[in-house]
Amino acid sequence: MAFWILAVLAVASGIAVFVVDSMARATFALLASLIAVGATFLLIDLHYLGALIILMMIMEMLVMAVFMIMFMMNPAGLMPMSMLHNKTGAAVISAAVFALLVAGIFLTDWPDRKGAPPPDPTEALGMSIMGPKMLVMMVIGVAILATMISTVVLATRRGRYDA
């Protein structure tokens, strides 16, 4: 039951992101959707990932809110506005994708569950990224470093440091 409430909340606020006319509300609708997803994880024993998603997403959305005000005209949605292009095309494509996915979900014969969740899924996660999945961790680390450098390069004004 709790799951379905959270699922409806997540989807409804996901839709709200593109319906409300205020950027601030859109950002926080997205945040609500993400938090609802984080909360569903708490239901399936993924406490660590659930809390982590909530933690990360709040911070991300707040940073997004700052940028949104910086770059968007009319962030408060005081003016009625539409910022869409090829609206129908997008709607058709995404509806088709959704239908396809739903069909896949119900037609696929999902494998049965193998084994039970370990007593401490967090520990399992930690052991696996420090052990067999070490490569993933290293790739993530390098990706973060690359992102840090390229964002700084992109965002600063050219010529401030060179020449």
Binding site: I69, M70, M73, N74, L78, M79, M81, T156, R157
Partner: peptide, 27 residues
């Protein structure tokens, strides 16, 4: 570039813009 978004709401004009200290045109 932002004509569509500027205007007056409820008797209140939207903020204007100008270059900030990093050279971005901001409100």
């Amino acid at each position: 570039g932002h004509e569509g978004h500027m205007g007056v709401v409820g008797g209140v004009a939207m903020a204007g813009r100008g270059p900030d200290r990093d050279g971005l045109m901001l409100d």
